[in-house]
Every structure is written in structure tokens, then in C-alpha cells.
Design a protein around this nucleic acid. Structure first.
Lengths: 128, 128
DNA sequence: GCGCACGTGAGAATCGTTGTCAACTGAAGG
DNA sequence: CCTTCAGTTGACAACGATTCTCACGTGCGC
């Protein structure tokens, strides 16, 4: 299992070239316009396989779309505008420590966490 | 606008009775089995209207489903065991403040946030 | 090379959600 | 009370992201 095929290599390559989060649809379109014909189903499978192997990190946008990124980059959280969807990546060492400590106090180990901050950005407030 | 109808009251009532996060589909099913006939579209609209008014908070599950909860009750987070599902509610003033501060620094207002901490609880670790 | 289990891809199916539109109904004003 | 009408409803269609299906293709160990 985990055979190395042209298609999987192509999907993995996209995430090597691109920073940040990208949807399966976007990867598919990108490969298609680059001349590499890779089926949509295959892109989804490849992306999920990579995520299972811990090579990609995934989040969900407000509209329910799944986004993936190469997950080597250090941990951070997302600050999302509820109106325009603009997203800012924020790092929070304090939060990481707090989560670990609180979990430890309750006897939990191998702790990970997710956090999302939602608000209205300056631009959208001005616009109303 | 914002007329008070039987349907909207029914949807709001569900969140008064129930703790935690619930999906629109779940609310719809619950109302239906309770004898209150409310259309699915209406549930979606009511839930979104309530979220817009700041009465409900929303997050997305891993599978892309939208969940809502009454956001008046005092804020807390969940510490979940990835093995047995045991859940502990934890309060974290430090995190609230951090989230507000970081959001403010980026020009965001009306900030809310969700956080979930996942780990393996003492019992499950001992069991393996 | 051979075989075959795993991988592929086009299209159908699914699922949550949103749009459509004719019928309905609060509530403001006679 | 009764009218009026804009906001609301709900059955159903449409939608977009994702997953499933299945006949065909292809790494890779022999």
C-alpha cells in the first residue's frame, strides 16, 4: 500500500510549491491548468492520504470547504472576519501552554487543540 | 423585520432547553418529532438569523457540518478524551483575554472564539 | 516480463445547505 | 374587527463540496 504514482507525486508537489492553505478543488484546477491531468476523485484521495500520514494539516473554512497545507510550519490559529471571511494567522504560545497545563491538571496526555477566533474586521465595520 | 413567529420561537426554544452545540438538521428533527412542524429551510433561516443577532455562536465540525449553541451561558471550553470521549468543561479567563487582545491588535471587534482540546485521559492511558 | 492488488478517473450519488416562489400571516393602520 | 402588505413560511429544486462506484490502468514483487 501507499504506492507512489505520478498523481500522488503531483499533488504532493503542489503543496511543496505553495505556501498556506489550499482546497482540493484548487489543487485540482492548478494541476489541470498545468497540463497534468489528475482526476478530482484522485486529488481528494491523495490529499486525505497525505493528511492521514501527517504530511498535511487541514482546517475548514466558514463555508464548509476543507483546506490543507503542508504542516511543517509552526502551529498557529486563525482569526476570521465573520463578514468578509478575511483570515489572519496568529501564533499564541500562551494559549499552547495554557491548553497543555489545563489538560495536564485533568490527567490528559498527548494533547492537541484547535482554536478559532471570529470577529468583524476593521474594514467591514467601516463599511456598515 | 424580525417578526416573532411560532417557528422562530420554536427554534430559539430548542437552544434554551439544550446545552452545547447542535446542528440545524438536529433542531429540525427534534422539532418534527416534538410535533411542531417547522420546515427545514425555516430552521436554517432561523438559526442564521439568531447567529446574526449574536444569540447563537457557530462552529463547523470536522465533517463540515455547522453547529450552533446559545452563547449567553458563561463561556467555557471542552477537553475531550480522544479514546473514550469523556469531556471536561474548563474555563480559561487567560484564553479569553488573549483572544480579545490578539483580535483587537488586528482591528477585529465583536470577537468570539471556540476552542477544543483533545488528549488521552488518565484512565485510557492506564488501560492500554 | 507476469500477475494482481492497489490506484485511477469519469460520472453518479450523497449530504448539508441555500435558492425559489406561491401561499401565508404578524402587526400597523384604518 | 378588518385590510393591507411586507416579512415569513415550506415543499421542492438547485448547488457545491465531497464521496462512491466500477471498469480500466499500472506499480511492483516475483
Amino acid at each position: 500500500m501507499a504506492r507512489t504514482t505520478r498523481q500522488r507525486a503531483a499533488v504532493a508537489a503542489v503543496f511543496d510549491q505553495l505556501e498556506g492553505f489550499h482546497s482540493a478543488q484548487e489543487v485540482h484546477a492548478r494541476l489541470r491548468s498545468a497540463g497534468d491531468g489528475v482526476g478530482l476523485s484522485t486529488v481528494y484521495r491523495a490529499v486525505q492520504a497525505l493528511a492521514d500520514d501527517g504530511e498535511l494539516d487541514s482546517i475548514r473554512t466558514d463555508s464548509g470547504e476543507a483546506l490543507y497545507r503542508r504542516c511543517s510550519t509552526q502551529h498557529h490559529h486563525h482569526l476570521v472576519c465573520r463578514s468578509c471571511g478575511r483570515t489572519v494567522e496568529v501564533a499564541g504560545p500562551a494559549v499552547e501552554q495554557w491548553a497543555d497545563r489545563v489538560a495536564g491538571e485533568h490527567g490528559f496526555a498527548d494533547v492537541s487543540h484547535t482554536m478559532e477566533i471570529v470577529g468583524t474586521c476593521a474594514g467591514c465595520r467601516a463599511r456598515d
